[in-house]
């Protein structure tokens, strides 16, 4: 009788675990698949490892629950007294190693791809400040500051009395968004003017720190036009929560039009040409990246 209850509870626990994981998809609160090759690889890796872990978890916890149900004193069992099993121990050392290798292979491949910014067609320099971003389209004379949109800024004050749900894109809207062309290999050069920030747009697939005195590189190529939102992802002081990133991706022609209208614009409107000088001598090929 009592036993039966335990069986039910145990099954319920296991089911609950599966349900929780499944719920993740159902509710859509999973890592976004995003709109770049990277975000999709990150997503695929994430799902792969997650499922491997779920399977291992079900096996391990399953064994544990079987034991909890069957091997209990109230069932009148006598405890066995074995203390080793070389075979089992070898198996559960070797199998996880194999599984890990299985995970490491695609992860390595993806990483090498992500860290190689060869052949970028365009450079954008991004500088973090407490608490805003500065974007410079290299060699075009265009640059501007991007900070939290005003209505969000007013609503987010302590006891502002404004219901955040009434504010459009609360905390995820800026005054000047970063506009970029689609299907273009863009190199991002990240640095900071004060403390460390981190530039992150989930849909683009990665975040990278903006560090004072250092320039970090990353690259992206967005396949779909749209507006993508993210946030600063490294604690940078009191308004760390209030320095969003908004990227608007436009088809190349529209982008070029937009760029030419920006104040200070001096460069050619041929984006592919203007980045070439920096791109040629300063890219990191996999060999170079591995060497240092």
């Amino acid at each position: 009788m009592k036993n039966q209850n335990i069986v039910i509870v145990s099954i319920a626990v296991l089911a609950g675990m599966l349900l929780a994981v499944w719920g993740m998809f159902a509710l859509g609160d999973n890592m976004p698949r995003g709109v770049t090759e990277f975000s999709q690889t990150a997503y695929d890796l994430h799902m792969l490892i997650l499922w491997i872990c779920v399977v291992i978890g079900v096996l391990v916890f399953g064994a544990m629950f079987v034991s909890i149900i069957l091997h209990r004193k109230s069932n009148g069992v006598e405890a066995a007294q074995f203390t080793h099993s070389t075979k089992a121990e070898i198996a559960w050392t070797a199998i996880p190693i194999l599984i890990l290798i299985l995970m490491a292979v695609p992860a390595t491949r993806a990483l090498i791809l992500m860290e190689t910014s060869e052949g970028a067609e365009m450079d954008i320099k991004i500088t973090g400040y407490q608490w805003k971003w500065k974007y410079e389209y290299m060699d075009t004379g265009v640059s501007f500051i991007s900070s939290l949109a005003q209505d969000s800024d007013i609503a987010r004050q302590l006891n502002s009395g404004i219901d955040p749900t009434t504010v459009d894109n609360y905390l995820l809207e800026v005054d000047n968004a970063l506009v970029v062309p689609t299907d273009t290999k863009i190199r991002l050069l990240l640095t900071s003017g004060d403390v460390i920030h981190s530039w992150w747009v989930p849909e683009l697939g990665w975040k990278r720190d903006a560090i004072p005195g250092i320039v970090n590189t990353a690259w992206t190529s967005i396949s779909e036009p749209g507006t993508y939102r993210g946030q600063c992802a490294e604690l940078c002081g009191k308004d760390h929560g209030f320095m969003p990133v908004v990227v608007i991706a436009k088809p190349r022609a529209e982008f070029e039009q937009w760029l030419a209208q920006q104040p200070g614009y001096t460069g050619s409107d041929d984006v592919s040409a203007l980045a070439q000088d920096t791109a040629d001598d300063m890219t990191t090929s996999p060999e170079v990246a591995l060497a240092d």
């Binding site: 005195g213 250092i214 300063m282 990246a289 060497a291």
Partner: peptide, 17 residues
């Protein structure tokens, strides 16, 4: 060396130092 533009520090050197 990175600050001087070696390997990993190309862009750091080129843009800042």
């Amino acid at each position: 060396p990175w600050l001087g533009g070696e390997g990993h520090g190309v862009m750091t050197n080129a843009l800042l130092w």
